[in-house]
């Protein structure tokens, strides 16, 4: 009986951790843009929807996976550059709240545009990854979740490497640290910001494919941003590593809470419980686990 309890606990825990990695994937897009431009891009969910809808429609038109992926990526790059040119650049000197509200408006435009171009139908997306469980010892784990976690982990590792080890990554960090100084040493801000938005588009595409395969490609994809916010608060808005750690903590705690604490409240607690965890962390560490402390000269 006790062994059964322990096994169940670990099944829930592992399931939660794997779900958490999926949350991290969404949070990653936010962090990337926030880190380099100080903008919390509320349109990230809409970009996920747009990318997934575009990809699935191209696939349904008979294009091979790689071609559909490439075309979608190009479209996401065009979208990213357009957003940077037409929305972000004109608002460059505005306060963060203005930029945030601008991205909020942008999210509706992208959502509406996606439905206008691709229609309102729900689509299935098969990535060829089986979703049947495999046994790891006494615990059964979803193959799809393991694959999704591996893809997400690889993406995070690649981004960390990019930011730490490449020249372009270093310029991203320079712009994030001090745009004035970056300008003074001749860095091309417009190019950098365009690149950031393109990279966010790539992340949106990967997230769209994995979440789309899970939920179906439909409007609700844009709501997955709600899963990313507690992760961001916990991990820090500007930490790539923080998204992974935050995602794991949020994923595991919300699932364990739902199963073991939920019955005391009548169930259905996992969504708000994630925000409770985030709030508690906020009280203890306002910048999140890995967020940079902002020191301002007064």
């Amino acid at each position: 009986m006790m062994a059964d309890q322990i096994q169940f606990f670990f099944e829930v825990l592992i399931g939660g951790l794997l779900s958490g990695v999926m949350y991290s994937l969404v949070a990653l897009g936010f962090v990337l843009i926030y880190k380099t431009s100080g903008v919390l891009n509320f349109a990230q969910g809409s970009m996920v929807l747009f990318a997934a809808l575009t990809f699935v429609q191209l696939r349904e038109k008979g294009l091979p996976f790689a071609v559909a992926f490439l075309i979608t990526l190009i479209l996401m790059a065009v979208l990213g550059i357009t957003v940077e040119r037409t929305v972000m650049r004109p608002l460059l000197n505005r306060s963060p709240i203005v930029l945030f509200l601008a991205t909020l408006g942008l999210s509706y435009i992208i959502e509406a545009g996606a439905q206008l171009i691709w229609g309102t139908q729900v689509h299935a997306l098969d990535l060829g990854i089986s979703d049947t469980p495999i046994q790891v010892g006494p615990v059964s784990i979803s193959q799809f979740d393991i694959s999704a976690a591996l893809i997400s982990g690889t993406l995070v590792a690649a981004l960390v490497f990019f930011f730490q080890r490449t020249r372009t990554g270093l310029t991203f960090r320079a712009v994030a640290d001090d745009p004035f100084a970056a300008l003074a040493v001749g860095l091309r801000l417009s190019r950098i910001w365009a690149l950031v938005w393109i990279t966010a588009g790539l992340i949106a595409l990967v997230a769209g494919l994995l979440w789309g395969a899970r939920l179906g490609v439909q409007f609700s994809l844009s709501l997955i941003v709600l899963k990313a916010f507690p992760v961001l608060v916990l991990g820090g808005f500007d930490s790539i590593l923080g998204t992974i750690v935050g995602g794991l903590i949020i994923g595991a705690t919300e699932k364990l809470a739902e199963v073991f604490v939920g019955p005391l409240f009548g169930g259905g607690i996992e969504t708000w419980f994630a925000y409770v965890v985030a709030l508690v962390f906020l009280l203890i560490r306002p910048t999140g686990l890995f967020g940079q402390k902002v020191v301002e000269r007064v």
Partner: peptide, 21 residues
């Protein structure tokens, strides 16, 4: 190179509290 761009302001990063609220 950057003449076309208005000068950026140092991002006064809004606190996470704001977004959560």
């Amino acid at each position: 190179m950057n003449e076309a761009l208005p000068l950026p302001r140092t991002p006064s990063h809004p606190s996470p509290t704001f977004f959560l609220l």
